[in-house]
Design a protein around this nucleic acid. Structure first.
Length: 751
DNA sequence: TAACTAACTTAGAAACCCTACG
DNA sequence: CGTAGGGTTTCTAAGTTAGTTA
């Protein structure tokens, strides 16, 4: 058997001696696996591999073997094989099925970042006045907030009005004691001009009103009936509530999926009375249609409400927002992101999620942990109830937490992205990425060196890092099989996810990636790689089954530990941030031309943004109405064209007329006509740009990168440089989130 | 060391709402 | 004035990362 392990050993062409210790360790781990099936599977695959003792394998093995001082093993990484195999048996076309229905198919290539300059990182590096080095620099002058300067005040006028309305309202807030403190300055607080906490403390004072619970269940009116096997059946309130969750979703594809139905039915039965349970044994015999109709009618009714009713609803919402949607954190009133507790319902996992359809139970006060300062006025639980706990932990940022019943994970209520606590973190994230910029050359040289390492784990680490850097892949943690959809990232890639082509379409050493990533979004890409990478991949894949891990000596923890050594604060995800931001900056430089008008410049911006979205594989399902809306737009364009030729014709005749008549009036008429033509031309151009933009955006989602990966200062600087109002790039919410960047970035900001 | 836990960021879909157009 | 449809907001799932525990 010992030989059977060989493929697991750390060894590379360099070869080395056999290592029995490792084998033992490996065995030990095996026994830790909870599932016996998995052990069996393990054995199976070992046998399978032993069959592959080809000469090259032998050669490697016999030569000096690379050792893994870390004693790393195959670890649990492949423990989940069995299930996957089973699934595959069931559906050979699993891939196709699993794929999201977003129509994504073709390899999207980032046109920029050509191979040849990949390792050249932009040189110019300059720091802004106010900037501080993210980690240790605290030499910030805590300026007191003053009036914003005129320019900005002007620019922000529209929202400012809205803002001040809000700030007025807040006077309603409790103003007791020293803590609550000084009246909020009416101007926007520039937290970025103040010093930060350094010691892991997130706040000194925190007060809030607790969460808003989901409204209690309202039983259906008696005329809305449920039928089982064609016969009316009155359900108990508990069973009825869960039934309505399903009834509401009848039009959704989920309800056609086997797993969803199975999970739902199982959980639903748990809520039934013994009688109901005895009777309702087959979901297919359940008729939820009246419920479905009822809820549809309800939403129609809501839409059809009178203005006053709508206004009333709005005001009620606003009241709730004012009361529960804000907290006081360190003397400032800050917006809470999700102050409403998630209502009960059926779990909607993405992709092929094994738990889809399970009942997400209602959260009650006794499930809730409150976090606030000791010296604050603690939120009251609803009458007759108790919180699970009230704690005062100022090393964390959340206000409320509870444990969710599907995955057993913890959910939190936290602050809005516009808040200081989120903003600082965001800013810091980009500063870390900028620090990476300074040393990325070194790191790239290093991993290129490591491709030649004698140690397998180092080679794997280096190749993985290359992918993360070049392709902006996610780190790829291991996941518990059967708990979530089968998706992967870089470190968890399996052999089946890549194909190697020594030569493909005229290019050498092409790797084809095809896997499901986060949210079960397909990643498909064909990329030429360096020869050494290619050879390494061949080596990593040797004697492995399709569902073996490509990087069996690597996981995210190992990788991140290594990265940490290369640069303080460096982790795998920093590469995504860095590459996204640097790409935007590069693309903006490349695509923006001074002569173009504003709409054209904005198109360029969107294209630069798009390059990033493609790099990060941010996709969306093409809107259902996409084709139609494209057509509509085309019709508009055609109409505009006609209008233009009409206007031109009129201009012509006006000109002719003016020539003959030579009077003021006809001259004027020419001028007007000229203007009209110009105006129409502009409109046409705008429409055409819009069409191009939309077409190019069909399956690409720009929002995610804009919100999470692109240093906003790059965009702000670009706007300032070209005289584009930031509003054209960022909507109100985005401007709130990026207020720090809008305030501090000048037109010469360099990422 | 690996498994587990906590905290926090990132993500696409769906719901909502506003506005331009007929 | 009604409405389509597109932008915005909300929702909550699904990741990453670091720290703790066994």
């Amino acid at each position: 058997m010992s030989g059977d392990h060989s493929h697991n050993e750390d060894q590379v062409d360099g070869g080395s001696r056999f290592n029995d210790k490792y084998k033992d360790k490996y065995k030990e781990k095996e026994h830790k696996h909870k599932d016996h099936k998995k052990d069996k599977e393990r054995e199976k695959s070992k046998h399978g591999n032993s069959d592959h003792k080809d000469s090259s394998d032998k050669k490697h093995r016999d030569k000096e073997k690379m050792k893994h001082k870390d004693g790393s093993t195959d670890k649990y990484k492949d423990k989940h094989k069995e299930k996957r195999k089973e699934e595959k048996m069931k559906s050979l076309d699993g891939k196709v099925k699993k794929e999201k229905e977003n129509g994504f198919a073709s390899p999207l290539h980032l046109k920029s970042e050509p191979e040849d300059n990949f390792y050249h990182s932009p040189k110019h590096e300059r720091s802004l006045k106010r900037e501080r080095d993210d980690d240790n620099d605290t030499e910030f002058k805590p300026k007191k907030i003053k009036i914003e300067n005129d320019k900005k005040a002007k620019k922000r006028k529209p929202e400012e009005d809205a803002k001040s309305k809000k700030t007025k309202n807040k006077k309603g807030e409790v103003a007791d004691g020293k803590k609550k403190a000084k009246k909020e300055p009416e101007e926007k607080w520039k937290w970025w001009e103040e010093e930060r906490y350094t010691d892991g403390v997130k706040w000194k004072f925190l007060e809030h009103k607790g969460p808003v619970f989901a409204p209690p269940y309202e039983p259906l009116p008696s005329n809305v009936k449920f039928y089982y096997d064609g016969k009316h059946m009155k359900l108990s309130p508990e069973a009825e509530e869960v039934a309505t969750f399903f009834g509401k979703m009848l039009d959704h594809e989920y309800t056609t999926k086997d797993i969803f139905r199975k999970n739902f039915f199982k959980d639903w039965r748990k809520e039934m009375t013994p009688e109901e349970k005895a009777k309702i044994t087959d979901l297919k015999k359940c008729d939820f249609n009246e419920m479905n109709d009822y809820f549809k009618a309800q939403s129609e009714a809501r839409k059809a409400m009178t203005k006053e009713e709508k206004l009333q609803r709005k005001e009620e919402n606003e009241r709730l927002l004012q009361e529960y949607g804000f907290c006081i954190m360190d003397n400032h009133r800050e917006r809470i992101a999700n102050f409403r507790i998630e209502p009960p319902g059926l779990f909607r996992g993405r992709g092929d999620h094994p738990k889809m359809g399970m009942l997400k139970r209602r959260i009650r006060p006794q499930d809730i942990i409150i976090n606030c300062s000791k010296d604050s006025k603690h939120p009251e639980p609803p009458p007759g109830t108790k919180w699970k706990e009230v704690r005062h932990d100022n090393k964390v940022t959340w206000l409320v937490s509870w444990t969710e019943n599907i995955q057993g994970s913890i959910k939190y209520i936290m602050l809005n992205p516009s808040s200081r606590i989120k903003g600082e973190k965001d800013w810091q994230k980009y500063e870390t990425a900028r620090r990476l910029k300074k040393c990325v050359d070194r790191i790239r040289n290093q991993y290129r060196e490591d491709w030649k390492s004698k140690e397998m784990r180092i080679r794997q680490r280096a190749v993985a890092l290359y992918f993360i850097d070049k392709l902006a892949l996610r780190a790829g943690n291991e996941k518990e099989e059967g708990e979530t959809a089968d998706t992967v990232g870089c470190c968890s890639l399996r052999v089946e996810h890549i194909k190697l082509y020594p030569e493909n379409e005229g290019q050498e050493y092409v790797v084809e990636f095809d896997f499901l990533g986060k949210d079960s979004i397909r990643y498909y890409n064909k990329v030429p790689v360096e020869k050494r990478v290619f050879k390494n991949l061949q080596l990593f894949m040797e004697n492995k089954e399709p569902d073996d891990d490509l990087f069996d000596r690597l996981n995210t923890s190992v990788l991140n530990k290594h990265l940490q050594e290369l640069m303080d604060g460096l982790t795998a995800k920093v590469f995504r941030t860095y590459n996204a931001s640097i790409t935007l900056q590069q693309q903006l430089k490349e695509l923006t031309s001074a002569e173009e008008n504003i709409p054209a410049k904005i198109l360029s911006y969107n294209r630069a943004n798009r390059a990033v979205a493609i790099l990060c594989n941010h996709q969306r399902a093409p809107p259902k109405t996409f084709e139609k809306s494209m057509q509509n737009l085309q019709t508009k364009i055609d109409a505009k064209r006609d209008q233009l030729s009409d206007a031109k014709r009129e201009l012509k005749s006006a000109k002719a007329d003016a020539k003959v008549r030579r009077d003021e009036k006809s001259k004027k008429s020419v001028e007007t006509k000229k203007k009209a033509v110009q105006r129409i031309e502009e409109q046409l151009m705008k429409l055409e740009v819009q069409a191009t933009d939309r077409e190019e955006n069909k399956q690409i989602a720009l929002g995610t990168s804009k919100l999470n990966y692109l240093d906003p200062r790059i965009s702000v600087a670009w706007c300032k440089k070209w005289g584009i109002p930031v509003e054209k790039i960022y909507n109100k919410t985005q401007r709130e989130k990026f207020a720090w960047a809008i305030d501090m970035a000048d037109d010469d900001f360099e990422f």
